[in-house]
């Protein structure tokens, strides 16, 4: 299992070298969105409206942070469970999203779309929300402010610790990792 230092935006070549189990330290600009924001973005696309950020080469982090304490950049900011975004994710891959950061298993439709569009799914440690917040150096709300913790934020991150959990070659760490340790 390799270790990679990645910077945003991601290219097809960046994504293709990644295999499940690889560790990644990610730096650059990422965008946050979860249930309500995904719904709004995809409904907007259906009406021909633009997304609130440049989707080409982008990574979307599924997170709803806790409120920011005075003096801090952001509140605690760990990943939410990804499967709730499965109905929306392939649509964003079609138009250039290159990565998703979250936790938990994805469905087959998402995995197929990832292989087709060369997209990587990176796992952040769920519940390690205070630790992950330390990697976030800047945070700006750029859309849907009315959604509170679910508003779309632009984050500048440095050395965010991630693991490749689903790659664009059909690998799924939730399946392969478990196989190695399951005692039948």
């Amino acid at each position: 299992m390799a270790e990679y230092i990645l910077k945003t935006p991601l290219t097809d070549a960046d994504v293709q070298k990644l295999r499940i189990g690889d560790s990644v330290r990610l730096s650059g600009t990422i965008y946050t969105a979860r249930d309500a924001a995904h719904k709004r973005m995809v409904e907007g696309l259906d009406k021909g409206q633009p997304l609130p950020f440049d989707i080409k080469g982008s990574l979307v982090y599924y997170v709803g942070p806790s409120p920011t304490k005075p003096g801090n950049v952001i509140g605690s900011a760990g990943p939410t469970t990804a499967y709730r975004m499965d109905p929306y994710a392939p649509r964003l891959m079609e138009i250039g999203m290159k990565g998703m950061i979250a936790k938990g298993k994805r469905n087959d439709a998402v995995k197929e779309a990832m292989a087709r569009h060369k997209v990587v799914y990176l796992g952040a440690t769920g519940g390690a929300a205070a630790l992950i917040a330390k990697c976030i150096k800047k945070c700006d709300i750029i859309a849907y402010e009315d959604l509170g913790p679910e508003a779309v934020r632009r984050l500048e991150v440095e050395d965010m610790p991630l693991v490749v959990v689903t790659d664009c070659h059909g690998g799924d760490l939730y399946i392969e990792g478990r196989k190695q340790y399951e005692v039948r």
């Binding site: 189990g21 936790k103 938990g104 298993k105 796992g123 440690t125 769920g126 693991v163 959990v165 760490l173 939730y174 392969e176 990792g177 478990r178 196989k179 190695q180 340790y181 399951e182 005692v183």
Partner: peptide, 13 residues
């Protein structure tokens, strides 16, 4: 713990 799911589901004991 024999299921093999492990921490964060990445596989483990």
């Amino acid at each position: 713990n024999k299921l093999g799911i492990g921490p964060m589901g990445y596989g483990g004991t």
